[in-house]
Design a protein around this nucleic acid. Structure first.
Lengths: 274, 274
DNA sequence: GTGCTATTGATTATCATCAAGCAAAGAATG
DNA sequence: CATTCTTTGCTTGATGATAATCAATAGCAC
């Protein structure tokens, strides 16, 4: 096999799989290990691939969404348990509208594979469902915000105005007595449109979000049906929320079995109030 | 550090980076190699990660779009050169509408990082631009086809009807004397809407597509401004296209330097006719 | 406290991978 | 045809990674 074609196929294989073991490549391309190794060195020099012990990683891969990369796994433990509690109150065959944000992303991960209709404006969320044949996916178009990967703007809002869903799962940058806050002006409008499209509104927010305001007010507390948070939420806030109307679900960080992240969402204990 | 938290952080790290070397993890988590190794075995069993020699890959990641996975790198060499020739006739600051398909995906890869406005209905394409701050991205929403990851349907078409772009890059399942063919009925409608939104229409298709019909006719040849293909296209077909109206650009597979795939799009020789 | 168990860290022998050097086979050049 | 340059495959000693075993520690029940 000519060297040119081999290197070209090499790139294709690596790109396709994201990772390829060295002996794998030796077998599939039918050349010696030394040759593969030399090719990989060249690819690395060129920046297309990254070598590891025993294999290669594709380097020119998808640029990642900033928000999901930088973010320290700050309250991820909490976010995960909140997500686990949230998916329990979503039934199969529902139509679910999912907002952007890391907590809703966790919810989306747990929903993947279930028989649902999902509507979202978030590209990271959409990617999770894109190839799931059991889940119908409707993507809200519009202008894509580069930092967060969500669709915004008039097109998005107008499309939303014509949809109706059974359940909307919203995230928030902050929650105060006045209601839900968000950090982006355009996103606030889109979230307001989401509220109008919803039958039941669920807000997911870890306890650190309470008592914190942000740029714009999205909605009052009375528009929310259910708030899902973690057990770190103070008594006062619990009462404040309940007084304002919503049901409150507090997810306990599970005593054991943290490993269940993927399919299995049964671990979190939940305490339902009022 | 308690084992639970460690494993949780492990998942976060792996997910964030896609790959992590073993000694890296040892250093960052401050535990012994044996412990890390045991944790990774557990994660692998559980399906969250995939072990390699000397490291781990994240497994629970994005499910991949079927079309891009299965597809043999059949005419990829041709597709790449076609893509390289195509991006040469697209200028900075233009508004470009990109169709779905593997050839247009290659075009998109070469456009990534340039100063453009990009409009697309394809999620794989959108992912390439999502975090590029230099490129404005407008995503056409709608119903997402699970196999190909493109948005279809009435919402998509209606949004398109309100847009105007300088250049549209279309793909095709087949090209005959009658015109452009596509394999999906709904997609044909969307592509017709794309044609209507376009100033200049570029069709990218490798030579194997010519003389091949598919399910539905999308448009006649006269609606196309430029056809970009490879040098494998027969004389008769060249003449047929030129007689019908479009300009024809044939990309030669470069004699050397196949390695330039990423940023560098300068390699392909092109022959421009009429 | 005593036993029990789970988790961790160190050690070892074994195996896989690596870089470098060298020779053979083509391809290109004069 | 001879010569040079490139590409390829093989070998070797060295390095790195692995699995398995064992001892130490820390909890937990009673």
């Amino acid at each position: 096999m000519p060297g040119r074609e081999r290197r070209s196929r090499l790139i294709d294989i690596i790109r396709l799989r994201g990772f390829a073991a060295l002996d794998e490549l030796v077998r599939e391309l039918g050349v010696s290990e030394s040759t593969i190794r030399r090719d990989l060195d060249a690819l690395e020099e060129q920046g297309t691939a990254r070598r590891t012990h025993g294999g290669v990683l594709y380097a020119g891969g998808l640029p990642r969404i900033a928000e999901f990369d930088e973010k320290q796994p700050a309250n991820w433990e909490a976010k995960r348990t909140i997500a686990a509690a949230t998916v329990k109150i979503i039934n199969d065959e529902e139509t679910v509208l999912l907002d952007g944000g890391t907590t809703t992303y966790e919810v989306a991960r747990l929903l993947a594979g279930r028989s649902l209709q999902v509507v979202t404006n978030s590209m990271p969320v959409a990617n999770l469902f894109a190839s799931e044949s059991r889940t119908d996916l409707i993507l809200l178009g519009g202008f894509v915000s580069p930092r967060t990967g969500v669709c915004l703007g008039p097109y998005t809002n107008e499309l939303l105005s014509r949809l109706h869903v059974t359940t909307t799962v919203l995230s928030a940058a902050g929650i105060s007595k006045q209601g839900l806050f968000n950090a982006q002006l355009l996103l606030a409008e889109t979230e307001q449109a989401m509220l109008r499209a919803a039958g039941k509104v669920i807000v997911v927010a870890d306890s650190s979000k309470f008592g914190r305001k942000s740029l714009t007010l999205v909605s009052g507390l009375e528009a929310i049906d259910i708030v899902v948070s973690d057990s770190g939420l103070s008594e006062e806030w619990q009462q404040t929320i309940l007084d304002a109307g919503p049901r409150l679900i507090l997810a306990d960080i599970p005593a054991e079995d943290v490993d269940s992240v993927g399919q299995d969402a049964s671990a979190a204990n939940t305490k339902i109030e009022s």
